[in-house]
Amino acid sequence: MSKTIEGLYYSQSHEWVKVEGNTAFVGITDYAQSALGSVVYVDMPQEDDHVDAEMEFGAVESVKAASDLVSPVSGTVVEVNSGLEDSPSLLNEKPYETWIIKVEMSDPSQLDNLMDAKAYSEYCESL
């Protein structure tokens, strides 16, 4: 069974969000990394790019396939995790410690549309 962390928000497309003030850290869940297999490339936006909730903002790619990254919230990208350029496998090794983008949220109420750890676990089991 895949791991979840209490206190994070989760999307149906298997991203997680950690909130600090008005900043959202976005990564992919343990379920997502396990389903993907070894991540070999992460296609990321650039700083100052705008992302929209439920819109694609990049892709994680395994050897075999590319899988879209969908932003759980809207806002401005204030930082991308440049460490993933050389070590994309961090997403496999430490999915909940490896954020992909940091977003300054324009509408924090969008967090209400996301799941908590318990609801996300149940969602994964239903798949």
């Binding site: 297999g37 070894s38 070999v40 395994s62 050897v63 075999k64």
Partner: peptide
């Protein structure tokens, strides 16, 4: 089988 240990 697509993979066992991993494609790499």
């Amino acid at each position: 089988p697509i993979q066992y240990q991993g494609i790499i």
